[in-house]
Design a protein around this nucleic acid. Structure first.
Lengths: 147, 147
DNA sequence: GCGTATTAGTTGAAAATGTAACTAACAACC
DNA sequence: GGTTGTTAGTTACATTTTCAACTAATACGC
């Protein structure tokens, strides 16, 4: 009849990926949303600064694969929450270095613990060794693999 | 220093999942966006009706895990494009059966071919057997597994 | 140095999403 | 048969995201 009776959504990788990603994101979102009133992009920016240290908005865009307007707004929001400060860079005043404040760092460390616990819980819910496999495959698909 | 130096974003499953999902979705999105000016939710609704046959909005919500307002708007949009028609159900006038029109079906079949090709291409880009593993793991995480 | 191009980042309007309140139809209980 | 509760779906409003235009600073060509 349709000629597509064999093509199921649940085997279409983009769909599967989305369902899984949405499910986990939504769940973890609760943590930073409730605790700190953060949006996903804010959490990502916070994480990048906390994990990889001081950097410019552009560098965050590149590393995180986020659009510059999203980052710009997240930075403004985090600044308003006093989680980060900008400092002009001598030599090139177009961009500024972003760094976490003390409370920004505290929030980062707190959320990191939650994230680690969440991640561990997910991994524990999978059969032995599957998490590793999944991780490898996802890195490839995300374009983060070393190939 | 931070105590979290070992916790890398690239091993945090929700993040990885998101990166991979976004990447693939964005790429495939081009297809239905350019060809038919459809949004992701519209494509999903179209797909459900094409693949599983006539059903109500509620059934689509449940099967696709979409919120009813999203579905409602997607249905309106698809109706405007003349890709589907509603027919009142005798006996219960609260819900109506949704069915693809001829051109709706044609769009579905066309996009299905594209989707299958896209999926095949992704799978081919992965090492032997990895796609299967990935699929299994994702189904579990997405909560679609039979466990 | 001066005009042009590029780059970092911001802003504003339009599109999309999420939340909650709403309408309409049915069900159930008495 | 009327009151109350539930279900399907829509609408209205606030929040987010996206897109395009913009500013400001630097780099380049000559």
């Amino acid at each position: 009849m349709t000629g597509d009776a064999d093509f199921d959504l649940t085997t279409f990788l983009p769909y599967l990926l989305n369902q899984a990603a949405e499910r986990l994101s939504l769940e973890f979102q609760q943590t930073y949303k409730v605790k700190y009133g953060m949006l996903r992009t804010e959490w990502r920016v916070l994480f990048h600064l906390g994990r990889y240290g001081e950097m410019t908005a552009k560098q965050i865009c590149d590393r995180a694969g986020l659009h510059k307007t999203k980052v710009s707004r997240a930075v403004t929001a985090l600044e308003k929450k006093r989680f980060l400060i900008r400092s002009e860079m001598a030599g090139d005043r177009r961009h500024s270095a972003l760094a976490l404040t003390k409370s920004g760092r505290a929030a980062f460390e707190d959320l990191c613990r939650d994230a680690q616990a969440f991640d561990a819980q997910i991994r524990a819910s999978l059969p032995d060794g599957e998490a590793q496999l999944l991780e490898r495959g996802l890195m490839r698909l995300a374009g983060l693999a070393q190939d």
